[in-house]
Design a protein around this nucleic acid. Structure first.
Lengths: 206, 206
DNA sequence: TAGATTGTTAATCGATTAACAATC
DNA sequence: TAGATTGTTAATCGATTAACAATC
């Protein structure tokens, strides 16, 4: 079961399954089926079973899946049974919102450090964090060993900051800036540009 | 050229192309090639050409694409040559950040109304907007004719608010809440749950 | 002209679905 | 047992890539 053997498109669905399963769990459900989970996330039952079969046999014929067990398995597969420290770069409104977001803690993440390059913000407080000088990105992140970053700087600064994050040892970047980033092989980027999300829908509007 | 003839996976790449082209434009470039654009967004030249060929012939052999012209064409295809009014529901940190976001205006969007259900926030001011009572979602949105919403409410409220948005005539929802929404056929949803973005990358981390 | 690059066709590759034996 | 549902195989479907004639 080599990492690169499994298509990324399957990996990208697992967090969706995990989210839906935890939702069921919060509702007091104990078991589910590929049919029911598929309906919950808008995919076919066959697809759910095929995806899960890449990693093991998690269900029982006749009864389906034990939700708590499957949640555990998915958390291990996705490596979020542990907690990842994350840095936030850019203390504008978006960076601010992410620094205060309560949803990370039980999904495997914890904001550990925040940066900005504005002298008016450096040294100030955001939530429980002291805003660090962006000049310290490389040294501070290297020292901490943190591998995950959220990028919330303006477009014009995004590629430059990305280069620093890579130099600092960051391996995964959640990018809110409206720009395609250029990164070396082995560095992963996920894009959350809100305008892109909207433009993916307007095509279909009357 | 029927809407449903063109695969959604192609539509979903067009905003990325548009973003990259405008970036080139801002840098003063006048023409580009499928090779160069592909390199900019991390896709093959063949894919770029194939995607664009679904909508017309926009390039010239030997010289490539006129950037300004291609930008115009993509804006028309995606229907963002006009400006779409958008509502924001949920005036927490995220809704607040989106209400103040400067990036929408030249990408085809304009926040026109914001809602919350917290009496402490209703009637208050966020940026230039007066926060409206969530109870008025259906009537206010119906009256306005707005078709696009951004959803920034807590998980527990998301499906209920979604039902109201659908009732109000909303056809496209950008969802920041950590939940798979259930919507009728014809309503489009794009998901921007930050935890999902992060969990899609941790699988690959050492 | 010579070099570059398009739009398109056919070939390849990969993902999804349907079907079903196994079995809880 | 009978009904339900898994995991898996083979078939289908769809997307990407390679190649190249056309032509700027």
């Amino acid at each position: 079961m080599n990492k690169q053997d499994i298509p990324d498109i399957i990996i990208s669905r697992l967090p969706i399954y995990l989210r839906a399963l935890r939702h069921m769990q919060a509702g007091g459900k104990l078991t589910t089926s590929s049919q029911e989970l598929g309906a919950g996330v808008g995919l076919s039952a066959a697809q759910i079973r095929k995806d899960l079969s890449q990693f093991g046999e998690f269900g029982k014929q006749g009864t389906g899946y034990d939700i708590a067990f499957l949640v555990d398995q998915l958390r291990k597969i996705l490596r979020v049974e542990r907690v990842w420290d994350v840095v936030v770069v850019g203390m504008g409104d978006m960076g601010h919102a992410l620094s205060r977001y309560q949803g990370f803690s039980d999904r495997g993440f914890r904001v550990a450090m925040v940066f900005d390059n504005d002298p008016a913000k450096i040294g100030g407080q955001v939530e429980q964090f002291v805003v660090l000088d962006a000049k310290e990105i490389v040294t501070a992140i290297r020292k901490s060993g943190i591998k995950v970053a959220m990028l919330c700087v303006p477009e014009a600064a995004a590629q430059g900051v990305t280069n620093l994050l890579v130099e600092a040892g960051i391996k995964a970047i959640l990018n809110y800036a409206p720009i395609s980033l250029s990164v070396p092989t082995g560095i992963r980027v996920q894009y959350l540009d809100p305008s892109i999300g909207l433009q993916r829908m307007t095509y279909y509007l009357e």
